[in-house]
Amino acid sequence: MIRSFTQRLGQRNPNCVFEQLDPRCKLLIVLIVTIAIVFSNSLMSSGLFIAVGIVALFSRLTKALLFTSSFWVLLWCIFMLLFHIVMRQAISAPRAMFTAMVFKGTALIMTGLWFAVTTKLRDFTSALEAWRIPKIIILPLTIAVRFIPTLFHESLVIRDSMKLRRIAHRKRDLLKQPHLIGHSYLALITIRSLKMADELAAVAETRGLARPGKSKIFKPAQFKRNDYLSLSMLLVLIIVLIIASYFV
């Protein structure tokens, strides 16, 4: 699990076209798509759903796409069953709800996932720096992402130690003795985190990170041709969908 996390955020895949896009451009795309989804009617949302689906297929997110859509379909079915039939609460527009849930819901989630899967931490921080977000946010971001695997690993080790000492080692202890988890696990992991933070601060100081002044980004984020291309394609798509939805 740790490995997949770090691979997702660290390792670059040279084959993926979307990874070359500037994260700022992708963020804008996500924002525009979200707004479009929020205000769209059924035709637009189905159009967006298809567009998102195609992009997802190209980003190797097929499984996620299928899973998300089936989840929404299932949820809609449960809704219909539970409320419409059993509880007799009329749902005014079941078809609209279906479109909204399945199309809008999937499109929203898949756009987000597309962004998440194709953006690497380093590119993201470069983009943030290009937007002049101060060091005081970017540095903790880098530290936090880098520490998530470490703290997760530490949690597993602590859990093992707790098991060995027979502290809350059975599943039912979760309900019977939750305070033990708090006392033992939370206290220890917090202490360990704070100690690690202190060690990291010492390392950071000796690496000169407290230097006043600007840091020079090695590969600054830049809008390239592909970025403008994708943004324009998106805008065209949305305009087309808006116009089309007037005719239906």
Partner: peptide, 21 residues
């Protein structure tokens, strides 16, 4: 424009690590 605004490196490490936590 990129100053630390009263936060030291210690503070920043703590904030980062605790966020991860």
């Amino acid at each position: 424009g990129k100053g630390m605004r009263g936060f030291t490196i210690k503070d920043i490490s703590v904030l980062g690590v605790m966020c991860a936590l």
